[in-house]
Amino acid sequence: MMLLTCPNCGARNVSEFRYVGEAKSRPDPETATPEQWRRYLYFHRNPAGWIKETWYHGSGCRRYFGIERNTVDNAQRPAGVTS
C-alpha cells in the first residue's frame, strides 16, 4: 500500500487520489503548434528520481495539489521544498 500526503487531509491511501500527471507548463492555446500540443499531452519524461506531480484528492478535500515524489522509493515532499 502506498500512502500519499494531502496538504489538507494528511496521509491517506493512494486509492483516494487520482494522478493528474507530471507538473509542466501548458502551451499557450493561441500560439501553440500541433507538435507542441502533442508533446504536452503525450510525451512524459518518466525519470528515476524526484519528479513534480499533480494529484487530485477526490475522496477527501476534493482539491488539486502538487508534490515532489521520488519514483524509486515513493518518498514525498511538498512541491517546491528541497532537502
Results as ranks from 00 to 15, higher is better:
Leu41Val: 11
Val20Glu: 08
Ile67Asn: 07
Asp73Ser: 07
Arg62Gln: 15
Ser59Asp: 13
Pro29Gln: 09
Glu68Thr: 15
Glu16Lys: 03
Thr71Gly: 04
Gly21Gln: 07
Gly58Arg: 06
Cys6Glu: 03
Asn70Ala: 08
Arg26His: 14
Ala32Asn: 05
Leu41Gln: 12
Asn46Ala: 10
Gly10Ala: 02
Asp73Glu: 02
Arg26Ala: 15
Tyr40Leu: 03
Asn46Cys: 07
Arg38Ser: 11
Arg69Leu: 10
Trp50Thr: 01
Thr71Trp: 01
Gln76Tyr: 01
Cys6Thr: 03
Arg18Val: 15
Arg62Pro: 07
Ser59Met: 13
Thr82Val: 14
Glu35Ser: 09
Ser83Thr: 13
Ser15Ala: 12
Cys6Val: 04
Glu22Phe: 01
Ile67Pro: 03
Phe65Asn: 00
Tyr19Arg: 12
Tyr56Glu: 01
Tyr42Val: 06
Val14Thr: 04
Lys24Leu: 09
Tyr19Met: 09
Asp73Cys: 08
Ser25Asn: 14
Cys61Pro: 04
Glu68Val: 11
Gly49Arg: 02
Gly10Glu: 09
Met2Ile: 15
Leu4Glu: 01
Trp37Tyr: 12
Val81Cys: 12
Arg38Asn: 12
Arg12Ala: 10
Thr33Met: 01
Trp55Thr: 04
Glu22Asp: 10
Thr71Ser: 13
Leu3Pro: 07
His44Val: 08
Asn46Arg: 14
Thr33His: 02
Ser59Leu: 13
Ile51Cys: 06
Glu68Ser: 15
Arg63Met: 13
Phe17Glu: 00
Leu41Trp: 10
Arg45Asn: 11
Thr5Leu: 05
Arg45Cys: 02
Phe65Arg: 00
Pro7Phe: 09
Arg39Trp: 12
Tyr64Ile: 13
Tyr64Asn: 08
Gln36Cys: 06
Thr54Asn: 09
Pro47Gly: 01
His44Gly: 07
Ala79Trp: 07
Leu41Cys: 10
Gly21Lys: 05
Pro27Val: 03
Gly21Asp: 08
Gly80Asp: 06
Met1Leu: 12
Lys52Asp: 15
Val14Arg: 02
Thr5Arg: 14
Ala75Trp: 05
Leu4Gln: 01
Arg38Thr: 12
Gly80Trp: 07
Gln36Trp: 04
Ser59Gln: 15
Met1Ser: 14
Phe17Val: 01
Glu68Gly: 05
Arg39Tyr: 13
Tyr64Leu: 15
Gly58Tyr: 05
Arg18Glu: 14
Asn74Lys: 08
Phe65Lys: 00
Asn8Ile: 13
Tyr64Trp: 11
Met2Gln: 12
His44Cys: 05
Glu16Asp: 14
Thr5Ser: 14
Asn46Leu: 12
Glu35Lys: 11
Gly58Lys: 05
Gln76His: 01
Asn70Gly: 09
Thr33Gln: 02
Tyr56Pro: 04
Cys61Met: 02
Asp73Phe: 02
Gly21Glu: 06
Ser15Arg: 10
Val20Lys: 08
Ala23Glu: 07
Arg69Phe: 01
Gly10His: 04
Thr5Phe: 04
Ala11Cys: 06
Arg77His: 05
Ala75Phe: 06
Ser83Ile: 12
Pro78Tyr: 09
Met1Trp: 11
Arg77Gln: 10
Thr82Arg: 15
Arg77Met: 07
Asp73Thr: 07
Ala32Leu: 06
Met1Pro: 09
Glu16Trp: 09
Gly21Ile: 05
Ala75Asn: 11
Arg39Cys: 11
Ala75His: 10
Cys61Ser: 03
Arg39Ala: 14
Val72Ser: 05
Val20Ala: 10
Glu53Ala: 07
Ala11Thr: 13
